[in-house]
Design a protein around this nucleic acid. Structure first.
Length: 302
DNA sequence: ATCCAGGAACTGT
DNA sequence: ACAGTTCATGGA
């Protein structure tokens, strides 16, 4: 990771194959999102490091990413963690050279890899947030999923107001672990979603489940198996979390409806492809299934 | 009304 | 191991 810190502004130097503008477009597509906002080309996000609330104002000049701190500059050690956070959020640890090589020789990926060149997987570094968001999104339309998330965040998350705007933090697992099913049902969570999410919060709170532990596991298979053993986490959710939180470029939520629709749209099919057909198409994508999926999601409805 | 949505657990074979 | 059923609620 390369970055500079002049005491007030962080300057982060991303690897090649990164386009901040493309990432901003993706971040702006999610209507109803409460965990970040975009204004005048700047991305704003509230995070918490060592019990300190830090508002990030993130911009870019094509050579680097600049991070400013509108509500006050955090300590030097905290600024270092901010740099880590940005690095993870935009998946900057990934070398995309190979992905673009793969895409160049693939009929489905070639056009979208070109169109969205420099787009990276926008990650969800916090494991509890990644799992909760995935569970929320199971089998409901995205519009409603964002609605549920908004209610959840505004009911149980922490916030600050700056310049007339409210910035929210995702609720902590400690807080959610204490809730009853009924608390979440009030927000129109189904009984199952409420059970799953409170269960995940409990597992993280008492240490049975942690990002560190998952990252220590040897390979894709072990991590996937470990995730699927959690109640409420099936194959789709495990792959989603591995791609959005654990940085596995080979994670592949193959049953995803959005993926199916995107392939249908890209190829001009009459109906959605079957899983078997997708498996065949994805042979070319080996090792980069997560990026293929992400670019296909990006291509939806354009 | 009807079908579907960025699925998963449960049940029966 | 695998297929069918149930859950659950809003969007279009």
């Amino acid at each position: 990771m390369r970055w500079l810190d002049d005491g007030s502004t962080l300057e982060i130097f991303p690897p090649k194959e990164f386009d901040f503008g493309e990432c901003l477009v993706f971040l702006g597509k999610s209507e109803g999102e409460v965990l970040h906002s975009i204004k005048d080309g700047y991305l704003y996000k509230l995070i918490k490091i060592d019990d300190e609330l830090i508002l990030l104002k993130i911009g870019s000049n094509n050579y680097s990413i600049q991070v400013e701190f509108p509500i006050g500059t955090p300590s030097e050690t905290a600024r270092e963690e901010v740099a880590d956070y940005i690095w993870e959020w935009f998946d900057l640890g990934q070398n995309l050279e190979e992905f673009y090589e793969v895409a160049r020789n693939d009929a489905i990926l070639a056009p979208i890899a070109n169109t969205y060149y420099g787009l990276r997987i926008i990650c969800i570094p916090d494991l509890f947030e990644a799992l909760t968001w995935a569970i929320l999104g199971q089998q409901i339309n995205l519009t409603f999923a964002y609605k549920l998330k908004k209610r959840f965040v505004e009911q149980y998350g922490e916030s600050i107001t700056y310049d007339g705007q409210i910035f929210w933090l995702f609720p902590t697992h400690e807080k959610i672990a204490e809730l009853d099913i009924e608390d979440l049902k009030k927000l129109q969570f189904s009984t199952r979603k409420a059970e799953y999410i409170i269960g995940v919060a409990g597992a993280i709170s008492d240490g049975r489940l942690s990002k560190e532990k998952l990252l220590q596991l040897k390979d894709y298979r072990q991590v996937h198996q470990s995730l699927v053993s959690i109640r409420g986490v099936g194959a789709w959710t495990a792959d989603y979390v591995m791609m959005k939180c654990l940085h596995y470029p080979s994670a592949f939520p193959i049953a995803d409806v959005g993926l199916h629709n995107a392939i249908k749209q890209q190829l001009g099919l009459e109906s959605k492809p079957t899983i078997d057909e997708i498996e065949t198409m994805a042979i070319n994508w080996k090792g980069w299934e997560a990026y293929a999926t992400f670019y296909l999601w990006r291509s939806l409805d354009e």
